[in-house]
Every structure is written in C-alpha cells, then in structure tokens.
Nucleic acid binder design. Structure first.
Lengths: 218, 218
DNA sequence: CCAAAAGTGTTATGCTTACACCCATGC
DNA sequence: GCATGGGTGTAAGCATAACACTTTTGG
C-alpha cells in the first residue's frame, strides 16, 4: 500500500487575485457566489485543480474561464491551508495574482454568466465581506504588488501596448497611493532602458500631445 | 453532492529546506530515502499534511520530527505541484524554509534513526542527485535566502544567542559567497539598531577578545 | 615580541530627492 | 489668448563603497 493511500487527501484549489487599472483606480475581479457557503458574497475567482494539470495551468485556465483573458502576467502568491477556512471540508488554496492590461480588461464577463465585476481595491466596502479568507489573500496580493512595483517592471503589465509616461506614472501613484515626482519618475524609468520611445503621439487632446512608449520584454 | 467530492484530490505534502551554518559553510539537512521511489537518494525532509493541521503546523511538526528542533525561523517558500513530480501519483508539495541556529543544530538526528545529514549547499555533488524536484526547491530556497538576507534580519537566526560581529559578517559572506567589507558591515549593522552590545567578550582566544552582541527581536 | 583577529574614520562616488518654468495643442 | 497637461535640468542630501592602521590578547 502506497503512503499516498494512507493519508487523507485535501481538496486543492487555485484562487486568483486579478488586478487591473480602470477609472483611475486599482481594481480586482470578484465573483458573486451563487451557492452555499457564503451565498451572495463576493469572492475571488478560483476553482479546483484538475488531475494532470499543473498549478500554473489551473490558474491560467481559471483566468481564461472567469476573466476571459489569456497570456497575461501570472505569478504564484502563497498557499493558504488552515483547517476551517472552508466550512465544507479541508481545502487548500494555492493563490496566484494576475495583472490584466487596459487593452484586454473588456474581454471579461466571458464568465459563465455569473455575476463577475471589477471592484476597487481601496474601497473598504469591497474587503468587508469577502467569502472564506479571501480578504487576507487580497491584502497579501496588494502588499506584494506594492513591493514588487518598486524594484521590478510589473507595473508595465497593467498598461496597453502603447502608453505615455504620465499614464505609467499614474499606475504607480494609484498602486502606492501617494504622489510621485514627475521629473524624477521619468528620469528613473528612462534610465532603466526597458521602454522604447515611439514616433507616435497621443493626439486629439486639448493640450500638448504626449509621446507614446512601448515596453520591451526581456 | 458537494463539489469537494466531484473533484479528484491530490496528496499534499510539506517539504522543508532546513539551513544552518556549520564548518564555515551553509548546510542543508537531507535524508537518505529508504524506499522507492528514489531509493538511496538524498531528499529534503517532509511528509504528508494531516487533517486538521495547518500547513505551517505540518512544517513545524516535520521540523521537530526530522531535525529535532522547535521554535526556529520558518517561512513558506513556494508550492510545487507539477503532475509527474512524484511517480506514485499526484502530489502537491508546499515547501518551507527554516533557519536553525548554531546553538540547536546538534539536537538533530532526533530523526527516526534514518540517515539524516547536513550537506554543503554549495557542494555540487549535493544537488546532483536529489530525489523528485528537490534540487529545484533547494535552488529556490537558496535564492530566497540570498535576497532576504540583504534587506531583513534573517541572518541573525543562524547564529547563537550571543555572537560577535565577525561571526555575523561571516554568515553574510558564506551565504552571499563573496567578501564583505568589515568597516562598512559593522557600520550598517550597528546603524540598524537591532542588536544589543553585551558587556561580555569572547575570551580565551590567542588574540584580542571580541565583543559579544545579542539580537533583539522586534 | 610576535601572531592573530578586533576595532575604528574619512573621502569619493552615485543615487535619491526637491523643486519651477516653458511648450504645444484645442477651443 | 487661455486652459490643460507635456516636457525638461540642477543642486543638495544621503547612502554606499573604498580603503589602512592601531589595539588587545595569548603564547
């Protein structure tokens, strides 16, 4: 008898914290639960890991099913497994966080007609009554995003292919929830050498048109 | 029928990367496997998560059973769950890393008479034939330790309660595998304000005795 | 007095911060 | 010509990095 049969097996799910920037705010995709437990509550999208499917593949599948997006930034966050976190039984959740850029966020609601909506992360009402321990997962994801944006280029993943430096700066301000100095920001970003200046500008505005840039993946 | 019953359940284990400093080297605790698969190979200590036990509690239990230590630094690392990582079936491993200080490392071998030994992390032979995907887990743990030591105080967890600044510096040099400037190091460490100068010194040495310090947890 | 590690300051360099005005466009 | 956001440089402060000699002990 294999030891695999000697031990009780928990259920394993992946839960996703899917961020995007919209309406000048950091949003997270939540789904209203149709059944018990936590019926009617908002929850992070997620689902069971299938046999023969890697954890990352399960996360990507949920991302596609629930948010209708593929090929976005996706990173494992943390694994939550306290007994009692799901009243139905032992469920271990491997959480991921994803960043959806402005180009693709409209493809959402590809979801199975469920009530899926973007919620402001900073709206205290959002966190108030999330299902399970999803508030904790969300808080951790925000913390990680805030740290990571300071020393990596994940911030670019939230923008469309072509963007202005002001738009990029705004992403930082929204996530960090504090103003950023324009000149220092531009200096730092350009010095990094990870964006290419395009010849185009964002026209049709009632002021000087801004230069467009694109991100070069490494 | 609950959805928990509709989906196949994988086995879930915790695997531990237990570091210590000994013989002027960074060591990891490995256990020689007595049974198949990977019989005779070295592997990270670990075991199945029990029902009603949190992941962290499972890790702490394994730490106690396999290394004979309690109450040491313990942090979740990453969850590995590729199908095929265990030939016996679907096994998802939540990995943790632990830091055992020099005071307590001798309590090891409390293990069930199994062949448990400290191996040099930098010895290429160590990684060569680890069981499962444990090489990958170990590599990731080393990467994390190296990063974390630069901006946190985890380094102190590897030292006895009382230590000299030279000993602390040596921990950094061993982990980073590069020399550290003595004066700058002392300046930085003292400026952090996380260690207390003791009145004692490390005597009985054939040179000027070094002042002892202790770490103040926050 | 010799060997061996402990302990100690100063200067140069680069990075981060603070800060204010002119520019290009649409209306 | 006015309102609106786009775009630009410089100086100060701060943290990091480089570097060599004196001190204290045991033998």
């Amino acid at each position: 008898m294999s030891p695999l049969d000697k031990y009780p097996r928990p259920s394993v799910t992946v839960d996703l914290v899917i961020f995007t920037i919209a309406d000048d705010d950091l949003k997270v995709l939540l789904i209203r639960r149709g059944g018990e437990p936590f019926k009617g509550c908002w929850a992070l999208p997620g689902g069971f890991v299938e046999l023969g499917e890697s954890l990352e593949a399960a996360a990507a599948r949920e991302l596609s099913e629930e948010a209708g997006v593929t090929n976005v930034y996706l990173e494992q966050l943390y694994t939550f497994g306290d007994p009692g976190r799901d009243p139905r039984g032992r469920v271990i959740s491997v959480s991921y966080f994803a960043l959806v850029d402005a180009d693709r966020q409209h493809i959402r609601a590809a979801s199975d007609a469920a009530d899926a909506r973007w919620h402001s992360v900073f709206d205290t009402k959002t966190g108030g009554k999330l299902a399970f321990d999803h508030k904790r997962i969300l808080d951790y994801a925000v913390w990680r995003l805030r740290n990571k944006i300071e020393w990596t280029t994940v911030g670019y993943e939230l923008l469309p292919k072509k963007f202005t430096l002001s738009e990029l700066q705004r992403v930082y301000e929204i996530i960090l929830q504090k103003p950023v100095d324009k000149r220092n920001f531009r200096k730092k970003v350009l010095a990094q050498g990870r964006i290419r200046e395009l010849s185009e500008t964002r026209s049709d505005v009632a002021h000087r048109p801004a230069r467009l840039y694109s991100f070069r993946k490494k």
